[in-house]
Amino acid sequence: MAHHEGAHGVADGHAHWDTSVWPFVISFGILALVIAFSLHFVYHQDFASVLTLGLGLIMIVSGVAGWTSEAMGKGDGMSYSAMGWFILAEAMIFVAMFVTYWYLRLNTDVWPPAGSVDLPKAMPLMMTFVLVSSSLTIHYAEHLLHQGNRGGYVNWLMATIVLGFCFLGMSAYEWSHLMHEGFNIGTNLLGTVFFSITGLHGSHVVVGLAIFLAGLVSALRGNVDEGFARTAGLYWHFVDIIWFFVVSQVYYW
């Protein structure tokens, strides 16, 4: 809830209305990112693009930081079910991606198309192990927090974050390995599908980690919110479940 809660003071005949600058800052940070994209890819103004990109990132990061420190711990406990609705929307992105993939693949005569390499089989299993472990660690962290053990919560949250970064590192290693073999996003339809689906999933891992980091920074400053922890955990489980579809449909089919 907003931060002047209940304070409808009528001092100097003027009631206070709640405000927050951070949504405004984040929105215009996103505008800067969009302009940076166009400057680079459409108008080829790389220097201006990098400047705008930097400005946008600074605005977004400071906006998220400000928002977190302003609102953390002041929620009304409704974020968990709200995240359920948000996950419905997120899931539909993956539905659209996978349906596109199935449609294109089932309408192709030869699969994999010419120019493909063998996708790794062992690496995705290790990545699955890491991601499932991180789902368990965050669940345990929530369990400890529910029992009132804040120190244990912070430790297991950090373990989850480390596992998340391990996952991203393995993904980056795999990408660079494939690109080194000359297989990239524009090689053929398999490259297109592989890099865009794993990239889309990876971007969700990044968002999940960003949520965890915001919670961790708050927690280290002594501000722990159980509702936030459960909501962040729910998002992370969703990212984990989507990974099973990625492994089974992209790597192993």
């Binding site: 951070w22 949504p23 929105s27 969009v34 609102a71 974020s79 709200a82």
Partner: peptide
């Protein structure tokens, strides 16, 4: 609303 700041974020994203 349940999340007033999120509400402000959506209106400013709309303006963007």
């Amino acid at each position: 609303v349940a999340f007033p700041r999120v509400n402000a974020l959506s209106v400013w994203l709309f303006y963007v």
